[in-house]
Design a protein around this nucleic acid. Structure first.
Lengths: 116, 116
DNA sequence: TATCGTTATATCCGGCAGGACATAACGGCA
DNA sequence: TGCCGTTATGTCCTGCCGGATATAACGATA
């Protein structure tokens, strides 16, 4: 039978009161900024507007004690952005949590699957 | 220090392709329908429009092999709705998963907290 | 057969998240 | 000192989710 894909979508978000400090989108963005050294390049890869990427970065930096992304304007290449040590640590922590959550969820997949 | 509340928000969704078969909102609704025996009463308790509640029910019933909610119109009291056996089982499964996921997440809370 | 409360739908609207543009500002470097 | 690519913002627009509202259908019971 043509079984449509059944999957568990968990998008853990770290909330600081009402504001979303970290989530799947921000994590991906963080990763790409680290990789490209630029917010705009990272945005392009994620096919999101620079506007939005910048907004996400601001939200992260505003929420955490230490900025996760340090950006600079002008200069060689026009500027750029780098992920701070704190940023790398937070990203790693989030990824680990994500992986563990997915492992747990996977164990329930079959249970749902047979009813869908 | 006035520490704003830091929490992990995980809203696991069971996806059947693109459609959301089960999620936190639907689970709550299901629970309230079971409790009240009525979609509209459940909707009221959740402070959501009957329109939306009904839409959610339809989505669930459409996604699962066996309808999770069985509704009837007319008759004594105008009609009503009950949660099927399948519905109760799916709900229980979802709740168990949710609880386990929350336990895992909780272990990461402190890690984020100290950086927020 | 008239009543009543709930299910079942359609239609109209408002809020808001996010994309598309448009511009500054910035600071190495040729 | 002009060029360039990136960061930093503001503004407009649109799609969509969900609320509000309005009926119709329904069927046990008095």
């Amino acid at each position: 039978m043509a079984t449509r894909t059944v999957e568990l979508e968990l998008k853990p978000r770290v909330m600081l009161g009402e504001v979303r400090a970290m989530g799947p989108g921000k994590a991906d963005l963080l990763e790409l900024i680290e990789e490209t050294g630029s917010i705009s390049a990272a945005a392009k890869r994620m096919k999101m507007s620079y506007r939005r990427a910048w907004t996400l970065v601001e939200a992260m930096n505003g929420a955490f004690k230490t900025p996760l992304v340090e950006a600079s304007t002008g200069g060689a290449g026009g500027g750029g952005a780098r992920v701070s040590e704190a940023g790398k640590e937070v990203l790693a922590l989030y990824r680990r949590m994500q992986a563990e959550l997915e492992m747990v969820a996977r164990q329930y997949l079959a249970g749902f699957q047979q009813r869908l």
